[in-house]
Design a protein around this nucleic acid. Structure first.
Length: 493
RNA sequence: CGGGAAUUAGUUCAGUUUGGUAGAACGCUAGUUUUGGGAACUAGAGGCCGUAGGUUCAAGUCCUGCAUUCCCGACCA
């Protein structure tokens, strides 16, 4: 299987084919019988659980709690906030009936026309509306604020075209929804969660991201300001990896959520929402993988080490089992997760390929030959390098190696991004450069019209206005009008 | 919703030109030999050829409708 992957490379034209093969062959996910929906398989879900656990810890550390809100939302809720309905109406699945009955021709079941719902329900594409409808009951006074809730849930957006992990009709995500007494506090919250996302992406996923602000065209439907983290994939396309929105008082006004201030005045509540989804797994796969399969950062690998025994006969196996069990114990004591695969129905060569395809960071080979010399063979997935190490103290060696791998994967992604990021000063140059992929930093006059024109002509969008970075004024590369600063362009997923 | 292509074994596909006994590879099952980079041999199991009609002595193959899936666009985290 790994051989088939080798026919393509992560940076070629046929990237989507490569990506799909990789996802399927690494046993992460597959398309389901339902259009646009995906089955996340156990190995893929194990990675998602790692992501969930880590993010959830980080949310708790910043004072958030989890809650759960309904899957179905009354249709009328969606129309309360004008921009919001505009943004989501086109992709909502709608529940119209609550009962089936046997068909009169006697074949199968049909929708019972008697069971039409008085008010149709939509399957949540996001939960702002149902949550703000609920918050109305929770908030009377400034003493009830802030509310810092997060929800782990599934949502559904009836996308025209789907791709495993990157854009599926149903996807898993977390959505934080907070309510605040002041504008400053809400803005600070939105910024804080952006930082949490950025830290998670870089420290755990080993994916470097640019923190920034979305232009008006790309802003979340209903938000005053959308902050985002943008990542660069190996084929030169950008991927929005997470967003944090400052919602102003838009939803409080739409759902009439007012509170009494310290000064005994009525005011609308200030809001944020922020989310990341199973799309992060797409980012993980596309940012690091090579032609031998996945490359997982140790911090998110379902297991960090796999031990493969090589033996002839039961005597050797017994001896190797003993050594392996001892090593497993030592590694676990050091907090390293490990799988010992002594299944005898697969050959070692098969296992080597399999675990490379699955992206396990470190492989330890225990063979009779090595053990006689007191050595073990270690292979690191990121560099595909084999070394021989003394059995004594190998657990400590592996623990340090894992740190090194995590750092190396991040550095590699960072170097790649640097190599495809550049400044451009004219539109002609831009049109040439955008074909090569990567991030392009250029001046823009700040108008939606110019942004739209660039998108039409080059398929490139403004990924973000970076929070850090060059703030020297200049002139727009298209119109020549004044530009406050450079912004980041790319073609994106 | 536009433009292409596809639908046959668990999977990937051949077979359609010229209608005539349903095929291959991989996978699966059993046995033997194997085990330091995806093992070999032998013997098996497995198909209403997407669906509904039509043409014909005869349809996987020709004709018509329908459904579904994939790719390329528009939409989007």
């Amino acid at each position: 299987m790994a051989k088939e992957l080798k026919e393509l490379t992560p940076r070629e034209e046929n990237y989507s084919q490569w990506y799909n093969d990789l996802v399927v062959k690494a046993d992460l996910a597959e398309n389901s019988a339902v259009r646009g929906c995906m089955v996340i398989k156990p190995y893929g879900y194990a990675i998602w659980e790692k992501i969930q656990r880590q993010l959830d810890d980080m949310f708790k550390e910043t004072g958030h709690v989890n809650a759960y809100f309904p899957l179905l939302i009354p249709k009328s809720f969606l129309s309360r906030e004008a921009d919001h309905v505009e943004g989501f109406a086109k992709e909502c699945a709608v529940v119209t009936h609550y009962r089936l009955k046997n068909s009169e021709e006697g074949k199968g079941v049909v929708v019972d026309p008697e069971a039409r719902l008085e008010e149709e329900l939509i399957i949540r594409p996001t939960s702002e509306t149902i949550i703000w409808n609920t918050y109305k009951n929770w908030i009377q006074s400034y003493r009830d604020l802030p509310i810092l809730c997060n929800q782990w849930a599934n949502v559904m957006r009836w996308e025209m075209r789907t791709r495993l992990f990157l854009r599926t009709a149903e996807f898993l995500w977390q959505e934080g929804h907070t309510a605040h007494a002041t504008e400053e506090e809400a803005l600070e919250e939105a910024r804080k969660m952006l930082d949490v996302y950025a830290e998670f992406a870089e420290k755990y996923m080993a994916v470097p991201v640019v923190k920034g602000i979305k232009s008006a065209n790309e802003r979340f439907a209903g938000a005053v300001e959308t902050f985002c983290i943008e990542a660069m994939m190996q084929d030169g396309k950008a991927l929005q990896a997470g967003t944090s929105h400052f919602l102003g008082q838009n939803f409080a006004k739409a759902f009439d959520v007012q509170f009494v201030t310290k000064e005994n005045k009525l005011d609308y509540v200030w809001a944020t929402s922020w989310g990341v989804s199973t799309r992060l797994m797409g980012a993980l796969i596309m940012a690091h993988s090579d032609n031998n399969g996945l490359v997982l950062p140790p911090a998110l690998a379902p297991f960090q080490v796999v031990i493969v025994p090589i033996y002839k006969g039961d005597d050797q196996l017994a001896m190797i089992n003993e050594k392996a069990d001892a090593l497993v114990k030592e590694l676990k004591a050091l907090g390293v997760s490990v799988k010992y695969d002594n299944a005898d129905n697969k050959k070692p060569g098969w296992k080597f390929s399999e675990y490379e395809l699955k992206g396990v960071p470190v492989r330890v080979v225990l063979g009779a030959r090595d053990l006689e010399n007191g050595m073990v063979e270690i292979m690191r997935r990121d560099k595909l390098e084999k070394t021989s190490v003394a059995y004594e103290g190998v657990a400590q060696y592996i623990k340090e190696l894992l740190n090194d791998i995590q750092a190396n994967i991040f550095q590699k992604a960072l170097d790649y991004r640097a190599s495809v990021t550049r400044e451009v000063n004219s539109y002609d140059e831009f049109k040439v450069e955008i074909e090569k992929g990567g991030f392009i930093s250029a001046h823009w006059d700040g108008t939606p019209e110019t942004e739209e024109l660039i998108k039409q002509e080059t398929k490139a969008t403004i990924r973000c206005i970076p929070l850090d970075g060059d703030t020297t004024p200049g002139v727009c590369m298209v119109t020549g009008r004044p530009s406050a600063r450079r912004v980041l362009f790319a073609r994106a997923y």
